[in-house]
Amino acid sequence: MIGSTTMTKVIARMLKQLQLVMLAIIAVIVITFVMIFVMTTTEVEKHFSSSTIHSWVSDVQADWFVHVIGTENRYFQMGETHTELPSATQLAFELTTSINLQEPRTLLGREVPGFSAFDAEIIVAGEGTDYTTMPMESAPPPGWYDETYPATPQDEEEEGPNVDIDADDDPIIHIVHTHDTESFLPEIEGDVANHSEINIVQLGKYLGEQFRSYDLPVEVSEHSIESRLHERGLSYSQSYDVSREIVTEAIDTNESLEFFFDIHRDSQPKDITTATINGESYARTMFVIGQDHPNYERNLAMATELHHRLEDRYPGLSRGVIASGGAGVNGIYNQDLSPNSTLIEFGGVDNNFEELHRSADVMADVIQEYIYEQLEEEE
């Protein structure tokens, strides 16, 4: 009788263990399918990659990584500064919340409306550049497009390349305007710095003319990205997705293209975006580099070099170089398509074309010198 009872308990225990094992197997299978579903249905830009991992850990203090690697390779500890490392609890808090308790901006940028616009890294600070004078992006007000543009049927969308180009030359420079309706208040009527015709595209075309004066073949995109957004029912935040189509098409059409410039205007006021140099007023410039792709360092190197050359010739013209990445921002700006790509802010809402043209003249001179040097190195 006792032996029968013991056997029953053993069998019951084995069945319970078998049940737990089966439940564990089912859980693993379910989790695996869920992970496969997530990884295969998310957008390409959000797949797991080195750039994604970079954005995850970008807010974690670098001392941690040096210290961890140094436990396995003593050479890393030779250059390690003896700073107090954060606790494991603090590290876990940073990884789960993306908030660094030693950097208040990481909290404010997520809690204060509009503050995240300043969540970028100043690589090179020009005169007067700090976190209070960072570039500001402003979308057109709701309903502005419907009031400005007539309705355009889907089947009447522009076809073919809409670019200004010297037909006899193979272009090596491409100029695009991701926010093509960005305008300048002194040049238009009203208090909304957006316009369907008088806008940043005119400045891009002027810059293209200056490049041609240096015998550099250039194509200037005149596509209306705002129009495409409206026709497709897309949000303003998807502007770079649309401009990516334009730049990719340009690359596929012209293998000769090597240098890419996305021209914008800032929303900061005139006292921040204007400089008086040799008695004349100039619209100040700023370079913006996206960090969320593996090869951003080459774009950063080009922008930094152009900034220093501007400073050597016209001190105060360049506001500097900033790098943007991580959650809540684009972080790429299509600069992953070329190692010679940068976004340039020209002036702000209160600058006029006379000031902008002066700056474009200087910028074209500096860039053409840089391009010719690069071309000579390639030969």
Rank of each mutant, 00 (worst) to 15 (best):
V220M: 05
W144V: 01
A283L: 01
F93K: 12
Y206Q: 03
F118D: 08
Y333S: 02
S51P: 05
L216W: 02
A360M: 07
H177L: 02
T8H: 11
F115V: 14
E111L: 05
E245R: 15
H230R: 09
T276N: 11
L85Q: 06
Y333D: 01
L203D: 00
E137P: 15
K46L: 11
G331V: 02
G320A: 02
A117L: 04
L108Y: 15
I277G: 07
L101C: 12
A151M: 14
V68Q: 12
T148C: 11
V349H: 12
R309V: 01
F346G: 01
E156V: 04
T342Q: 03
A193Y: 04
I272F: 10
N194Y: 15
D252T: 12
E157P: 13
V163K: 05
G326S: 02
A167T: 07
N330M: 08
M302E: 00
N351E: 05
V288H: 09
E45A: 06
I165D: 03
D191I: 05
F115I: 06
T8K: 08
T8L: 09
F261M: 12
Y236I: 09
A283D: 00
R13A: 10
N334T: 07
N352F: 08
E378R: 06
T52M: 12
L108K: 09
L234D: 00
R228Y: 11
E182Y: 11
L337S: 07
E103A: 03
E378S: 14
N330Q: 10
Q77T: 12
E297S: 10
T148S: 11
G328C: 07
A125N: 05
T41C: 10
L207W: 08
T52H: 14
N295G: 07
R110C: 02
T89C: 09
P315G: 06
L216Q: 03
I263A: 01
Q374C: 07
T274H: 04
I25T: 11
H308F: 03
G347E: 01
V220W: 00
D59N: 15
E379S: 15
R313P: 08
R298Y: 03
E94L: 11
V28N: 04
R284P: 08
I122G: 01
M134Q: 02
L207P: 00
G325R: 01
S359D: 09
D215V: 14
F259W: 14
P104R: 03
E127L: 09
E377I: 14
I69A: 15
M302H: 01
F211P: 02
F261T: 03
N278S: 13
L343I: 03
Q291D: 13
H195M: 04
E379C: 05
E280G: 10
P86C: 06
R265G: 12
P171G: 03
A139N: 12
Q202S: 14
I251R: 08
E305I: 04
R105H: 11
S243H: 09
V10N: 14
G109W: 04
L343W: 00
H54V: 05
